[in-house]
């Protein structure tokens, strides 16, 4: 009797929808805890240690953090480079994505092809192959200079070898990967009610006026979303620098994440690398908070 009652409850428990949900998401939850949360907190501990991977970590207090802010010019250089890269490339990329999305908004036979074509760089743009291709394109004897030669500008300028232009090669590569933002813009452009444009036309508003008064305000939630996501990605950029420039010339393209990698795995200052990682987390968190704080001043919200 007792036994039977127990079985019933087990069966009931198993039948519950929430049980199925938990069971289905368990692989993710386990993976997330084991491979994200646990290593994260281990790295937090290491950031307060002298640790070189090969020997056990010894606790060293806030030494790593103090060194970073007071005695490491390279740290400040990478901060400067990373901010420059993110703050320039992200807005440019969003503007580009919006322009292309507006062009591709009308559905014709060709737009499907163009949408796919413009999305392609986002899929392949982060890859090693494209990074190497990029390096060859902007070489002194590369495709870009040959093209300049065709229009009459003969030059063997090494775009990646100059302190002032090298970072721009990485920015252009990043801007070129506007595809995912473009797709998001496209879908929200399509959600703007046509009736608003019709009303505007009846009132005699120009295309330009329609864009500023209807399209842009109604897109602000999407712009905000894209801005936050891309900003985070921008600060975490790694491959371009790691493959194309390795920070050269003169650390003018040394991204924060690459410096973190160098400290952790090339110089074996893994404790210091962990501290760098946590400072970056703080920086990204701060920027995201700032972005959210400004939200109410410029993001259109239907609810209010």
């Amino acid at each position: 009797m007792n036994n039977k009652k127990k079985q019933m409850t087990l069966k009931q428990f198993m039948g519950q929808e929430s049980t199925a949900g938990v069971v289905f998401s368990l692989p993710f939850i386990i993976g997330f805890l084991l491979f994200m949360i646990v290593p994260m907190f281990i790295s937090l501990y290491y950031s307060f240690c002298d640790y070189n991977i090969l020997n056990p970590a010894t606790f060293a207090g806030v030494k790593n953090y103090v060194k970073m802010f007071t005695d490491d010019p390279t740290f400040w250089k990478t901060i400067q480079v990373t901010f420059y890269f993110a703050l320039v490339s992200v807005p440019l990329r969003l503007i580009f994505a919006l322009i292309v999305a507006m062009i591709l908004q009308k559905t014709t036979l060709a737009t499907g092809f163009y949408r796919a074509a413009y999305y392609l760089p986002s899929i392949i743009g982060g890859s090693v192959a494209v990074a190497i291709l990029w390096r060859r394109m902007f070489a002194a004897d590369g495709v870009f200079n040959s093209l300049l030669g065709v229009i009459g500008i003969k030059t063997s300028f090494a775009w990646l070898g100059n302190v002032n232009t090298a970072i721009w090669m990485l920015i252009i590569l990043a801007v070129w990967q506007f595809g995912s933002s473009m797709l998001i813009f496209l879908s929200s452009l399509k959600q703007i009610p046509v009736s608003l444009y019709e009303a505007a036309r009846v009132d005699g508003a120009s295309k330009w006026k329609q864009f500023w008064s209807i399209t842009l305000p109604l897109l602000t939630p999407t712009i905000f979303f894209n801005l936050v996501m891309q900003m985070i990605n921008g600060f975490l950029a790694f491959t371009q620098c790691f493959i194309i420039t390795q920070g050269r010339p003169l650390n003018s393209t040394l991204f924060y994440t690459v410096y973190m990698y160098q400290q952790s795995f090339e110089f074996y200052n893994t404790g210091y690398g962990a501290a760098l990682a946590w400072v970056m987390l703080g920086i990204i968190g701060l920027i995201t908070i700032v972005l959210f704080a400004t939200k109410r001043f410029w993001v259109y919200s239907e609810g209010v």
């Binding site: 002194a140 004897d141 063997s156 990646l160 010339p249």
Partner: peptide, 27 residues
């Protein structure tokens, strides 16, 4: 050799040393 040419190659890879890789006398 001009240092800027090293921006375009994988430093340390024997196949890309300027001796065998350079396409003009300056590189």
């Amino acid at each position: 050799i001009d240092p800027s040419i090293f921006a375009e190659i994988s430093i340390g890879a024997i196949e890309q040393m300027p001796m065998v890789y350079g396409s003009s006398p300056e590189t």
